[in-house]
Amino acid sequence: MKTRVIFVGIGGATCSGKTTLAKHLRKILPGSVIVHQDDFAPPQELIPMHPEYNVQDWDSAEGAIDWPRMIRTLREVKRTGIIPPEHYSHDHLNEQRDVPIEQDTFRRWHETFTRIQDEREKEGEKIIWVLVDGFLLFWHPEVIELLDVRMFLRVPHDVLKKRRNERHGYHTAEGSLWRDPPQYWEQIVWPAYVAAHSRMVEGGDVEHGQPNGAVPDLILIEGLEMKVGAMVERVCARLEEQ
């Protein structure tokens, strides 16, 4: 049986809701898996120091991700449909607020994709959905090229800041807990987000600009204008076309 691996990229700033959306899709799409970009952060001792503020910079695109390792892993998953056994995810260590969706939405789309899966398998094709979520997903051109569907969740600055401040911290791959130093959001997180994403929207306006084509076929989702269930509806409708 022929295997077709479909990469669904879900990008967005820290605390934008991308992982929540990805986990709802994983429950809906038969046999789907999630690859979290956070799992490709370098070892804690290799995270660079910010040249001006003298704290570790976990957010600037150049140093926050081990890009060769991420690209190598994605290519392997694309080829085999299997996450390499040596790949370790620490996502389960991080707190995540449960944001449920309507049961009717879940049931309807789960039935739809189960039917599609059955139909394709009768035709000799097995579909494997790989949900790739990340806060820097659309920065590296090789990662962008690997994605078959590209979604970006946009949430306003003040909401992101509030959500970030309400978090107790982030677990590293080594299991330690990283807590933001004072002014980390203002000095590092937000500037790094703007730097990584301004090139893909009109006028470089990450808050209001529309996609400008730098990331091909990018689907922009305004995170405050839609409930999670509505996001799931929109994304599933797009995935049904694959």
Rank of each mutant, 00 (worst) to 15 (best):
T114G: 01
T114Y: 04
I101D: 05
P84D: 10
R120Q: 14
I83T: 07
V130S: 03
G124M: 07
E95D: 15
G134I: 02
D98R: 13
L93G: 09
E123G: 10
Q117P: 04
R120Y: 08
L131G: 00
H90N: 14
R79M: 06
R79Q: 08
R115A: 06
V130N: 08
G124H: 09
R79H: 07
P100I: 08
P84Q: 12
T80G: 10
L93T: 07
D91H: 14
L93C: 04
R107I: 00
I116C: 03
G134H: 04
T112A: 12
Y88T: 15
H110D: 01
E125G: 00
Q96P: 01
T80E: 12
R79W: 01
F106D: 01
I82E: 14
W129K: 02
Q117K: 11
E86P: 09
H92Y: 15
R79V: 00
F113P: 01
E95N: 14
E86K: 14
Q96G: 10
I83R: 06
S89I: 11
K122G: 03
D118P: 00
E86H: 15
I82Y: 11
H87T: 11
N94A: 08
H87L: 13
Y88R: 15
G81L: 09
E86Q: 13
P100T: 07
E86R: 11
T112G: 03
K126M: 04
R120D: 12
D104G: 04
G81N: 09
P100E: 04
V99K: 00
S89Q: 14
V132I: 13
D133V: 02
T105P: 05
N94R: 11
R115V: 03
E121F: 04
V130W: 03
R120V: 02
R115P: 00
L93W: 12
E125P: 00
V99W: 04
N94W: 04
Q103S: 13
P84E: 08
H87F: 13
Y88H: 15
L131Y: 02
H90G: 07
Q103T: 12
W109Y: 15
R115N: 06
P85W: 15
V99P: 00
T114D: 06
E123Y: 02
P85E: 15
I101F: 05
V132N: 05
E86A: 14
Q103K: 14
E119T: 03
P85S: 15
S89L: 13
R115C: 01
R108W: 06
F106S: 06
S89P: 14
P84C: 08
D133G: 02
K122E: 12
Q117M: 03
F113N: 01
R97Q: 15
W109F: 14
Q96K: 12
H87P: 01
I116Q: 08
R79K: 10
E102H: 12
Q96E: 15
I116M: 11
I128G: 02
